[in-house]
Amino acid sequence: MKDPEPGRAAALAAFDRSLDGAAPARTVRDAIFRPGAHRSDEDGPTTVLRFDLDGSTIDLRIRGRGDLRSLAGLIDGDFDHVEVFLRRPGERSRLFVGVDGAFHATGLRPGPLSLVVERPEHPLALTDWFNI
């Protein structure tokens, strides 16, 4: 029997219609910055992303160090309460969002990532998938 095309299982697992009603957050900035001359050998590039969420923005900074990534984010806008979830293929975890709208996650393995944002009186919002 012919071997399946590489990546077929992951491609099939990507199918998920459960969040079709969510509003897409527009990516308005996606830039890569390199560490300066004082970097250590383990420091990787920093990716800076900004998403527009219908009246709110999310700024993200993803840093690489060795085999792991860390994420620092800031959500601003006019709301009393917000929930931010980090989505990886097959899993979802809630991030603690401070009163100033800041959140972070560390020890992330490389791979695809997306954010889900819940705000009262707004539809669920999703960022596009990006690789960290």
């Binding site: 590489p6 990546g7 992951a10 491609a11 990507a14 199918f15 998920d16 897409p24 293929p89 791979g111 695809p112 997306s114 999703l126 596009d128 998938w129 990006f130 690789n131």
Partner: peptide
């Protein structure tokens, strides 16, 4: 490649 299919699903 996985990101491409996740984006298509999205």
């Amino acid at each position: 490649v996985q990101t491409v299919w996740l984006r298509l699903n999205h």
